[in-house]
Amino acid sequence: MATDAALRRLLRLHRTEIAVAVDSAFPLLHALADHDVVPEDKFQETLHLKEKEGCPQAFHALLSWLLTQDSTAILDFWRVLFKDYNLERYGRLQPILDSFPKDVDLSQPRKGRKPPAVPKALVPPPRLPTKRKASEEARAAAPAALTPRGTASPGSQLKAKPPKKPESSAEQQRLPLGNGIQTMSASVQRAVAMSSGDVPGARGAVEGILIQQVFESGGSKKCIQVGGEFYTPSKFEDSGSGKNKARSSSGPKPLVRAKGAQGAAPGGGEARLGQQGSVPAPLALPSDPQLHQKNEDECAVCRDGGELICCDGCPRAFHLACLSPPLREIPSGTWRCSSCLQATVQEVQPRAEEPRPQEPPVETPLPPGLRSAGEEVRGPPGEPLAGMDTTLVYKHLPAPPSAAPLPGLDSSALHPLLCVGPEGQQNLAPGARCGVCGDGTDVLRCTHCAAAFHWRCHFPAGTSRPGTGLRCRSCSGDVTPAPVEGVLAPSPARLAPGPAKDDTASHEPALH
């Protein structure tokens, strides 16, 4: 009773807030009518008042009428009001819900409408889902798969039609296919003929059939049928067999079959498995989609049935006599038709004709302190090069084509190399640097090759510096006499390219 009084008091307290929050009759008014909170006449009256005075006034009048009803109607109103779709449509209802007392429970059932309790003993237990329907569909599909699609060729003596089998029958139906081979029951999904010589313990000319048996419980189990008994694959494991010639990621696949039913060829011909030897223990289905393919039931050349050999690369099948050149017997292992072999060759040939990528240039590290003349020119003028003790990398590039010797140069053309002071002394051009340390401070000019250098860098042994005729380390061993002091540049003949010694390969005349 306390809860009923509290709900009535809360409705009177929030009546105006609810009326202002509800700006549309749908969905709240319609939901109240659906849950029998508002009768039909009051529903029509509220809609009429909404058209006349507006939605807030109409709902305020409806809530005032609701306060005169019993506690069950008020409880049902609060339940409908706080439904998710009403809270989404009328956003101003959320503060009312947040301020609702926590001790007021809106989930209690309506009085007088409590459903009768059902004894637990009368409640049926839930049924577990079964796979009976899938099993029945598999039974119905198996006879259809064994139905012949056409008439065999005159040369083929193997013609068999499976008798119709009602689904209610649980007995196995067997077809006489000759040579002791028996087909599987209607619940078998796949059958492959297997030679009895590969099964340990088999006697006589009995041949087993590799099947997948579907049981009534819905589970499946792969086994071997020899005669009327089934054997699990673990009985046929043979770890010492060295003649297993397995197909790549293979499961067994029928390579020879008669049109209309699988079996042995007439005249004692023995149908073979995809792999010879003992049956392997793992009978998992292969991951290669080509091995799941269903080959055609007629020859791809003459479009006739009979004894066919199936290609492992495509769905086509052929007569042995229709092949070019014809085959006398079934080859062992994987067999592919000429079209598949030709496609494989065409895929391999473009790969062989692809040009080989060019090898990157060989990189040879230079000892610290040495650099090529090109690196000396590329440096920024007026700045010493940083990191001189790091190992430089010199790339061996292809030799350029031989060019004509340089033409003779006048001494005026070499004027930018040297600057003559007032006393006739050779001065260095701006930006000249030593080729060893890279520093341009207090550098000297070689009178023979006009290269800038430090005496301490080229002659670290402490050799005394002569007063005139300074030469760098590369030119100090040259027998050519030094030019007379005061000459602007060496003779043009000295600039012609010539053979250089091994220790002077990195010091070429550089223009500054």
Rank of each mutant, 00 (worst) to 15 (best):
A258V: 14
H35A: 01
K235P: 14
A25Y: 00
A160P: 01
V38S: 00
A246D: 08
Q213S: 06
Q262Y: 11
A186W: 02
L7S: 03
D70P: 00
S234C: 15
R149D: 12
K164S: 13
P162E: 03
P143N: 14
Q57P: 00
A144V: 11
A19F: 02
G228P: 08
A191K: 04
L67I: 04
K131V: 02
L75I: 12
L28K: 08
Y231I: 06
F26N: 03
S239C: 12
I209Y: 09
M184T: 06
A141M: 05
A19H: 02
L93S: 01
L177R: 06
S169D: 13
R9E: 01
L49Y: 03
G242L: 12
L128V: 12
E51G: 03
A264L: 12
E51Q: 05
K114M: 09
L75D: 01
L158W: 13
P27E: 01
D103C: 12
P266T: 11
T232F: 01
P266I: 12
P154E: 04
T72G: 02
A202R: 11
D238G: 10
S248T: 09
H14Y: 08
L106W: 06
H35S: 03
R127M: 11
K42P: 01
T130V: 07
Q225A: 10
Q157F: 15
S71Q: 15
K161C: 15
A246T: 08
K259A: 13
G219M: 09
V214P: 03
L158D: 07
E45T: 01
R8Y: 00
E237T: 09
K165E: 10
P115K: 01
E40K: 00
P56K: 15
K243T: 11
L63G: 07
S107Y: 08
F26E: 00
P95N: 15
I96N: 03
L97D: 07
K243H: 10
D34C: 00
P166E: 00
H35C: 01
L106G: 00
E136N: 05
F100I: 02
E45A: 00
V22S: 01
V118W: 12
G91C: 01
G180E: 03
P252C: 07
K120Q: 03
A246R: 04
V256L: 09
Q94G: 08
D76V: 07
S153H: 14
G227W: 06
A19G: 05
D84V: 01
Y85I: 07
P162R: 03
T68W: 00
A25C: 04
L87A: 02
D198F: 05
D105T: 05
A205Q: 05
G204R: 14
E229S: 06
K111N: 14
D41F: 04
V118C: 13
Q44T: 03
G201P: 05
G54F: 01
K133L: 01
A152D: 06
Q94N: 01
S185D: 04
A202T: 07
I18S: 02
L146M: 04
D198R: 06
L158A: 08
L63A: 02
K83H: 03
A141N: 04
P109A: 09
G240T: 15
G155Y: 12
P176D: 00
K222V: 02
K131D: 01
K245C: 10
G201C: 10
G201A: 07
L63F: 03
S217G: 11
Q225P: 05
R89H: 10
D70M: 00
S196V: 13
A141W: 12
S169L: 15
A73I: 14
K253C: 14
Q225H: 09
V226Q: 05
S168K: 11
R15I: 04
S135E: 14
L11V: 03
K235A: 05
Q225C: 00
K259G: 00
L11W: 03
